[in-house]
């Protein structure tokens, strides 16, 4: 079990306060107060049985009686928090940054379904910025003109790539990359340093996660080059090395994370440890928004942390109930603070 030793670099982003977000920021501050504390999380992890799990959750947002009810609650909460931040957002770019992830996800699923040989049930997120029906229409009918700038282009790129490789995963790869690119473009246009820095960090950490996973999957260098994201601070060339050489050659603010999780990777053959550390690092970055008096960054950080909370609750409860060892669960729960 490894925990973060050193803390994050001080946020270099100098927050420019945005008084229009006074209402939103205050609203979010109240909600932040209602997030589950680390203490409750560890109580949940140590709970003896199902009954005590639900007893701990009683009285809070997640006070339900069964696993199914909790799943349902988590789904509702996610939809709820996204529509809330969408309402609180006062600018289009911010709304896009908040919800773009889900739009790209829906595009991915619909495109894959279009090219997949069998009929599949679609599981979409009805909480993006674009209406699901519109996306569906655009993708199935091939009428991209109605889509906002960037999306049509991304979809076209994914289609060409798929036609070239005949692999469904190519659609994922292209649209994931386009998500990162679009996020970068929108945040640059939006002009808030915080979002650009977030994306840079996100791209770097995702690239390292991908690096480990590509090694575990036994894929080659060309594949790695194809799936790495742009806009990270690390040069892509740094990744074309054996794992240990990569780890020792890394000199960034988060290189200690890689080195710390290396032993774990070697013994257990999984990079889940690094994934948790990387998420925690990212959350620490997001937590720097607590110094902001008014600003849209608060909305974004809250959404991310709330999403993580939903994820953690689900993982702990279903893991506990299904008898997964506590250490194994703990290894997957990034604690934001």
């Amino acid at each position: 079990m490894i925990r973060l030793k050193s803390t994050i670099r001080n946020p270099q982003s100098t927050f420019v306060e945005d008084k229009r977000y006074a209402y939103a920021t205050a609203y979010i501050r109240v909600l932040e107060n209602k997030l589950l504390s680390d203490q409750i999380m560890s109580q949940l992890l140590e709970a003896e049985d199902e009954e005590s799990l639900f007893r701990i959750l009683q009285g809070g947002e997640y006070g339900v009686g069964s696993v199914e009810a909790l799943e349902e609650k988590c789904r509702e909460e996610l939809i709820g928090v996204i529509s809330l931040v969408k309402q609180l957002s006062l600018e289009m770019p911010l709304t896009q940054l908040l919800t773009m992830k889900y739009d790209f996800y829906n595009f991915k699923v619909l495109l894959k379904a279009k090219y997949f040989s069998k009929d599949v049930e679609l599981h979409l997120f009805d909480c993006g910025n674009l209406d699901v029906k519109e996306i569906k229409y655009a993708v199935t009918e091939g009428k991209m003109r109605a889509l906002p700038e960037g999306f049509a282009d991304a979809v076209r790129k994914a289609e060409t790539e798929f036609e070239k490789t005949e692999e469904l995963s190519a659609i994922d790869v292209v649209l994931d990359r386009e998500f990162v690119n679009t996020f970068y473009r929108v945040s640059s246009e939006y002009g808030k340093r915080f979002f650009i820095e977030y994306l840079e960090l996100f791209a770097d950490l995702s690239n390292i996660k991908i690096f480990f996973r590509v090694h575990n999957q036994g894929k080659d260098r060309n594949f790695l080059e194809r799936v790495l994201f742009d806009h990270g601070s690390l040069d892509k060339k740094a990744f074309f090395k054996p794992v240990e050489e990569f780890a020792s050659g890394l000199h960034t603010d988060f290189s200690h994370l890689v080195r710390e999780s290396l032993d774990y990777w070697k013994t257990d053959g999984t990079s889940a440890g690094f994934e948790r550390l990387a998420d925690e690092y990212l959350f620490q970055f997001l937590k720097s928004t607590k110094h902001i008096v008014f600003g849209p960054e608060v909305l974004f950080a809250y959404l991310m942390i709330k999403e993580n909370e939903l994820k953690s609750i689900r993982t702990i409860v279903s893991g506990k109930i299904n008898g997964v060892p506590v250490d194994m669960i703990r290894e997957r729960i990034p604690l934001p603070s």
Partner: peptide, 9 residues
């Protein structure tokens, strides 16, 4: 057969 962004190790 999937992308990396929404999946994990």
């Amino acid at each position: 057969n999937y992308g990396f962004l929404w999946t994990n190790s």
